[in-house]
Design a protein around this nucleic acid. Structure first.
Length: 272
DNA sequence: CGTAGCGCCTGCCGGC
DNA sequence: TGCCGGCAGGCGCTAC
């Protein structure tokens, strides 16, 4: 399941292949994603030149030189890959962007929770992007910012750091991990966190995300980076997926609860 | 307004 | 062995 580091890894992987490329045509095999892929793409995209590939939260932005952009989300199981082979099309290869010299950007998504959308104007004003909170790795995502926003929140801290309007890009895996390393119980009321705890939490979120990006992202079950090389960060997870196993720090048994329909694992000793 | 809960979808895993 | 129920999860949407 791609989280921010995987999305960033994907962006970095595809960017050098796409910049200054001209779109030849598009192939839509399965338009039914979270929102349908409009067949208008087949008319709009040909002849456009790619200006840049960017990330905002977990959205991948493919910017064209004529101001429009593709907004791509990988959902739960999506993957983008670069290839030059037209054939061997997989069951879940829903969308191809075909460039000159037969270079293909292929969108695969078994669970179809993702999307491929076109925005003709400034992508930041698109409804999906316009209300997003700060990037977790930007300086604006600071201890003071988190403390001020969280001090009135009755929800628990895990939900809070997973809310895109508070901060983008933190999914279930990294929420679990960051709270463990910050020593904060996931079901603590958000408003109960001290400035000091916010400082620690911010620091751990940034550290873990940066580390994961450095390692090329988590693979877990269904992610391959665009060049086909799987990352191995999943082997180093401290709590996620480790229910009933000993805590790596204190060896006591990790506990589990469901928060907001999401599995949550924590150490009752190391987190308080 | 803030918060809780829903549903999209397929692959995988455990139980019988 | 095969079937089936349950689970996994990002996140926008609806309902309170």
């Amino acid at each position: 399941m791609p989280e921010l580091p995987e999305v960033e890894t994907t962006c970095r992987g595809i960017r050098p292949h796409l910049i200054n490329r001209t779109v030849k045509h598009v192939i839509i095999r399965q338009p039914k994603l979270r929102w349908p892929i409009t067949d208008g793409l087949a008319k709009i995209l040909p002849q456009l030149v790619i200006k840049n590939v960017l990330r905002r939260g977990k959205y991948i932005i493919i910017e064209t030189c004529t101001s429009g952009a593709l907004i791509i989300h990988l959902g739960m199981s999506g993957k983008l890959s670069i290839s030059t082979q037209q054939d061997n099309i997989g069951k879940h290869d829903h969308f191809d962007l075909v460039f000159d010299e037969n270079l293909i950007l292929r969108y695969q998504d078994p669970r179809r929770f993702g999307c491929v959308l076109w925005t003709p104007s400034d992508y930041l004003s698109h409804p999906l992007l316009s209300r997003l909170g700060p990037e977790p790795l930007e300086p604006t995502f600071s201890a003071k910012y988190l403390f001020n926003i969280v001090r009135n929140k009755k929800i628990n801290i895990k939900q809070a750091i997973m809310m895109p309007k508070i901060v983008v890009g933190i999914g279930n895996i990294y929420a679990n991990e960051a709270l463990f390393y910050a020593g904060v119980l996931p079901h603590r009321k958000a408003q109960s966190l001290t400035l000091k705890e916010c400082r620690k939490l911010i620091k751990e979120i940034k550290r873990i995300l940066l580390y994961a990006i450095k390692r090329g992202g988590t693979t877990l079950k269904d992610f391959l980076s665009p060049n086909g090389t799987p990352g191995y960060f999943s082997l180093e997870l401290a709590v996620y997926g480790k229910l009933n196993q000993p805590c790596k720090q204190c060896k006591s048994i990790l506990l589990g609860i469901i928060i907001n329909q999401r599995s949550t694992v924590y150490c009752n000793i190391c987190q308080s």
